[in-house]
């Protein structure tokens, strides 16, 4: 059971809550103790918009334990509007083929169960095709 670990980072997981560096203004995700851009101390909370584009992607046909239920699933490097890149599953693709450059937006989904169906449900960010382009 890993609930303390998932609980600790719930804000960033649920809603892409990161940081903005008070020294160099860099937007940081995930939040860190030290700004990767200027090396200053980083701790000012920043809410990312959740908008981004697919920077690269893959489709997983084998999954690590805990993720088999969703196979096959796409994982992407998503470049956020504010700069950072995050690794995230793509969801709700429907019949849409994934392409590099495709606009996506963050949604909060079930990532996995911690342990079996008795464990906590882990929720976190995924990305889907931006609604405007999905129509």
């Amino acid at each position: 059971m890993e609930n303390p670990r998932h609980w600790r980072i719930r804000k960033q997981r649920y809603a892409l809550v990161g940081e903005v560096c008070p020294h160099c203004e860099a937007k940081i995700f995930p939040p860190r103790d030290v700004c990767p851009n200027c090396g200053g101390e980083a701790k000012t909370q920043f809410n990312f918009s959740g908008k981004g584009t697919v920077f690269s992607f893959t489709v997983m046909n084998d999954a690590p334990a805990g993720y088999e239920k969703n196979l096959p699933y796409a994982v992407a490097l998503v470049k956020l509007e504010e700069g950072p890149i995050v690794t995230a599953q793509l969801t709700d693709l429907g019949d849409q083929p994934v392409q590099i450059g495709m606009p996506v937006e963050m949604v909060t989904r079930r990532i996995r169960d911690d342990g079996d169906e008795k464990g906590i449900i882990v929720y976190g960010y995924k990305f889907r095709p931006a609604m405007s382009s999905a129509q």
Binding site: N70, T91, V107, R109, R110, Y123
Partner: peptide, 13 residues
């Protein structure tokens, strides 16, 4: 609802 959706995720959106 999709595989990764439930009342919590749908409520959030």
């Amino acid at each position: 609802a999709g595989l990764d959706e439930d009342v919590i995720t749908m409520s959030i959106e």
